[in-house]
Amino acid sequence: MKTIVLFFSLLVLGSTVAFAQKSMDAFEVQVDGLGCPFCAYGLEKKFKEFKGIKDVKIDIETGDFSFQYPAEKSLSLAAVVQQVEKAGYTPMKTVISRANGLVETDAPLAAVDQGVAGVVSEKMFVAGNCEMCEARILKATSRLQGVAQAAWNSKTKILDISFDANVLDRQSISKAIAAAGHDTKDHKASGETYDGLPMCCKYERVENK
């Protein structure tokens, strides 16, 4: 009898936890202007005004700010953006993964979906070292109109990018990344831009064709 009671108790507890986890919306915001750890503190403090906020994480090197918030409160994207601005920083891109599976974003990336006519996926070598490099490379691609998705791996140095071939081409992407300071096989960053990179981002220069 004891075993049965224990079994059902665990079952109820487990399903409660699972339900609780599912009832949280996940927020990811790319924030510019976090020049120091104190800035991150200011940002977190401002968001603590949202009662019930959980799992606050801030990566000051990349500006990635994420947290969870109870789904029943339906915290809007506009409210999140406004709160970042009230904290004194600049919100660049916000993605909300709702507990019901819906995804909301203000990023232009989501405007073009995979599978839509004209969208192609390519792989491209992009030189770089660290998370800061990753943030810079992805920021450069996100500014391009027509990019659907982009991901860069710091180990393989490969950028996986999906874009609308009707409005963008590989050369333009490569040029934009080089302008941000990262060599590709086709385009080399200018010496001045490369020199301006933080020490941790000083990758080995690529010899272009």
């Binding site: 510019d32 202007g33 500006g63 920083y89 800061m132 943030a135 810079r136 920021k139």
Partner: peptide, 9 residues
């Protein structure tokens, strides 16, 4: 005046 960038301001 405020000009923000990734990891800088």
């Amino acid at each position: 005046l405020r000009i923000d960038g990734t990891g800088k301001t």
